[in-house]
Design a protein around this nucleic acid. Structure first.
Length: 415
RNA sequence: GUGAGUGUAGCUCAGCGGUAGAGCACUGGACUGUGGCUCCAGGUGCCGAGGGUUCAAAUCCCUUCACUCACCCCA
């Protein structure tokens, strides 16, 4: 199906590693994993993300289930996590809750580089803290994770989108500005002017860019609390020595963001250059029927992260290949390899009864560090040959204690 | 939703009206029981699918599907 893909080995191994690292890092910072369903009632997203957004208007997989309920395959995870936070009254013991979740999202878009219909995110949310310290902290955690997994060339951009008190008046000012330049705006920006004038900032049409370079910026219109909050976030970032740039033209796609918004961009990603993005959503919990509790979070796009990771081969060859000749030895190899694998020595055998040369070739092809040769001759003499494929040296080891000898020599030695 | 490009062997691709090819990979042999190098041999294809034009279509035309990139939008 278009936009849906299989994740095959060896790539699946990288996925596993990225998820494992995320769990380690987030666990270390006191986050707990939450697993939420992939299906939710459709209205959760229209209320959370915003009725007028493209995601809700034309990108959601929404259908009626057999009982006639209107169901959506989640296009993002924050709404679900907020729903769970409210539904289970996770704020009851203490409003401060740190959660993360890993899984697939679904949007019916035309696929391109870094964009799929099923894509995967690591989502991180902190509920119950309105202080700017947490804003800086989660950005720091994000940057730490990205550098830990080896993502190079990432730039953190931050902005403040204000709160309803300052954003609404600013939107009108921006709208008025756009109206003044209406004749020179592209068709898309004219539409944006009505719906969401902020979006005009990321228009790619040169004429519009020129106009927007002179457009009023929200930073000049932030209310005192928002301006103060933003200044504090920046100063805390500096305390943690996190490199960032203020991007006053950065806009978020989802309606629920307030105050802090941030994005990690990387070149070489093509048109979709955001690897991770997030921001504060102080009204969302209340808007979805919960108490008045602030929140902040981000999502990392795993497909995009994979795109900017260096693709080291990550060889995962076995430690040992047993080359066996003849019925008796083959049975012996079969049993021995099972026991060795069980004991943590990655062992491979040949199932097809090939000749010795062919088996050695396979041992080499799979990148085995050692080869054990087990044939009729070895059965007679009671000595098997253990060959170090890398050093090209081999020695005889007694069949009577073969398991222990191999464990002793091979275990822990990587190919 | 819009636009452009590409679909031929497991992979990368050539062929662009006249019997489907190369390199790599794979399997075997040269080397009766010791891998990488070399040489030789072997198998492989609904030429993305459906329809049309033609004596003849992988090749030309139409439709459709998939992939890629860009717009829109977003992680």
């Amino acid at each position: 199906m278009r936009g849906f893909s299989d994740i095959l080995p060896p790539a699946s191994r990288r996925w596993g590693m990225l998820e494992e690292r995320a769990r380690e890092v987030l666990g270390g910072f006191g986050f707990s994993e939450i697993r939420v369903p992939i299906l939710e009632r459709a209205e959760l997203f229209s209320r959370g993300i915003g009725e007028e957004t493209d995601i809700v208007e034309k990108e959601m997989y929404t259908f009626e289930d057999r009982s006639g309920d209107c169901i959506t395959m989640r296009p993002e995870a924050t709404a679900s996590m907020v729903r769970a936070y409210i539904e289970h009254k996770l704020y009851a013991a203490d409003p401060l809750v740190k959660l993360y979740s890993i899984g697939p999202m679904f949007r019916h878009e035309r696929p391109q580089k870094g964009r799929h219909r099923q894509f995967h995110q690591v989502n991180v949310e902190v509920f119950g803290v309105s202080q700017p310290m947490i804003d800086a902290e989660i950005m720091a955690i994000l940057m730490h994770y990205l550098s830990l997994v080896g993502a190079a060339g990432c730039r953190l951009q931050v902005n403040s989108l204000g709160c309803p008190n300052c954003r609404l008046p600013y939107k009108e000012i921006l709208r008025a500005f756009l109206k003044n330049h209406l004749p020179r705006l592209c068709e898309d920006c004219r539409r944006r002017m009505e719906r969401n004038p902020l979006r005009a900032f990321d228009c790619k049409v040169p004429g519009c860019r020129e106009i927007m370079s002179e457009a009023p910026l929200i930073s000049a219109y932030l209310c005192a609390p928002c301006a103060e909050h933003f200044a504090a976030v920046r100063s805390y970032l500096e305390t943690l020595e996190i490199a960032y740039e203020v991007n006053p033209r950065m806009v978020r796609g989802l309606d629920y963001y307030t105050k802090t918004a941030f994005e990690v961009v990387a070149g070489e990603l093509g048109a979709q250059n955001a690897v991770a993005a997030g921001g504060r959503y102080d009204q969302l919990v209340a808007a979805l029927g919960g108490p008045d509790i602030p929140g902040i979070g981000f999502a990392i796009g795993m497909e995009r992260l994979l795109l900017i990771l260096p693709d080291e081969p990550l060889s995962s060859g076995p430690s040992l290949f047993i080359a066996a000749l003849g019925e008796g030895p083959r049975r012996e190899a079969f049993s021995l390899s099972y026991k060795l694998n069980r004991a943590g020595v990655r062992t491979l055998i040949d199932y097809e009864g090939r000749g010795l040369k062919a088996q050695m070739r396979r041992a080499d092809k799979f990148g085995a560090r050692y080869a054990l040769i087990l044939g009729e001759e070895e059965q007679r003499t009671g000595q098997a040959i253990l060959r170090d494929m890398k050093e090209k040296k081999q020695e005889e080891i007694p069949l009577s204690s073969i398991f222990e000898e191999i464990i002793r020599r091979v275990k822990g030695r990587s190919p």
